[in-house]
Design a protein around this nucleic acid. Sequence first.
RNA 1: GCGCCUGUAGCUCAGUAGGAUAGAGCAUCGGACUUCUAAUCCGGUUGUCGCAGGUUCGAUUCCUGCCAGGCGCGCCA
Length: 563
Amino acid sequence: MSEGLISTAVTSALHEALRKAQTDGQLRLEVWPSLVFDIPKRAEWGDLSTTVAMGLAKGEKRSPREIADVIASHLQGDTDLFDHVDVVPPGYINLTLKRDQWFRVLTEIERQGASYGASRVHEDQKILIEFVSANPTGPLHVGHGRGAAVGDALARLLSLTGAEVSREYYVNDVGTQIETLGKSVLMRVQQQDAGDHDQNAALPEGLYQGQYISAIAAAFMESHPSGTRTPGEGDAVEIGRFAKDIIFHDIREDLRMFNINFDEVFEEHTLYDDGVVQGALDALRAKEYVYTADDADWLATSRWGDDKDRVVKRANGQYTYFASDIAYHMHKFNRGFQRLINVWGADHHGYVPRMIAMIHALGYSEDRFQVSLVQLVSLVRSGKPVAMSTRAGEFVTLREVMDEVGVDAARFFFLMRRSDTPLDFDLDLAKRNSNENPVFYVQYAHARIASLFKMAREQGMDCPSVSEVTLTELGLPEELALIKKLAEYPEIISESARSLEPHRVAYYLQELAASLHSYYYKHRILQADAPELTSARLVLMRAVQTVVRNGLAVLGVSAPEAM
RNA sequence: GCGCCUGUAGCUCAGUAGGAUAGAGCAUCGGACUUCUAAUCCGGUUGUCGCAGGUUCGAUUCCUGCCAGGCGCGCCA
């Protein structure tokens, strides 16, 4: 788990201390403990602390205090690393590092630049992240936007931690949906053809209601000039395909504008065209996981904890969506992906157990499949919720939100809460240019530093490299606090990637920005009469800027040079 | 009825692979602009971590039961 420079050094020191205690016969260590550090809540508890002694007490049959003393005595020998080591009841070991150790962080950030935070925790994993996958029957709404932001951030996090990641969009283009879409457009075409221009009249229950249907109808009539005949029922499928192409084109356009690009768009119909569905079901039938009952075909998902078995082929001969999903996920594994991550709306959570059962049926371990559930977004304006009703087609589109608040604010807001909790998206707040707005606050930290460098250049100062400055000039508590914050970043990234929780990065950035603003306000950086101090501070500022930029990049938010 | 998620300060939310006196932003009150961006900063106030048990040296975190809210429970997609 330890990925940062400091924690790597401290972990190996602790490991060494335990090993020595063992060879000296002071500790038995029949089970080797996991070496975990916390950042203490209070400064007087040191830079890092570990509860390892408390965990060992039972196995060693000694008090945590005694064990902590033994470990601490060995750690104290490492005078390069530790300034001092304290043991505090009931058995905490609190570590305070030499200031020089913290300065190494600045060297590391300068050396790694945009790669600072990267690691190899997911090395050799080939991961497929499927997200958005909205049906091409209407424009993307804000909920899709949140899923898009989350999926993309997960992709960035996982590839930053060493995985080979593919972003994929699955298009449901089989079944009744496209036909329903076709019927919806057809009705508007017929209306318009009959000279009825009241496009607000509701369509029958079950059809798509939005304004975009009328627009597509108009486009259809333009490309299929009338005069020959009025389109009828038989044209629904053709019109459906026509509409799907337009809608999907617009979806891709919205996503491009939202700064999200997919490596692959996977169309459901190819699973049927290429016999993948049939092949998957045959294979499962050979293993006796698929059986026939009541004229339908079932997958025995209850074998793996699902409430009941699930139909894959209906009595009327049609396959269910689940059948496509089985084939699709088998196909994902067959393409060489070790790990599959699906980002879904939380309203689909009931579908997860049968998916997990299916993964077992296909012969894979369930830890190779994860679903990240993304909860609803409610828009708030002037303190009041914005009315949204999918039924009446009155949803707010992703495009509208992007147009109103901008891509950066939208992405940051979608990612600043844990994705499995509902999100209140305050449109007024997202547009505000003040510290109340977290996106602004973080971006401003970056811009502020950029502006500082501009000013420095105007005064003939370039930002020096770490090796050229006297780092001991950085003696203020706020400076050390900033460096410690920067040192945390690699762990934030690896934890965020491990737990599939990008919001941790958003929180971290707000904390880092707060430390920066506070420091910047209190202490002047450019001081003509103190060139050594100025140089050291510029180096620190550049490190902060690098980390802010890197963190924003994980969220897909820009880091402006000026605001 | 069954299942999943959620319940932490007035509001919006972090924190929880068990650890020390539970945090942030907003709101509110009071301060700071001869300054590299005051687009900012500093300080004060705020808690039965839904309730009740259990496991543990130690529980907001794990287990059980309840309460409240959301979502889901088709040979729909």
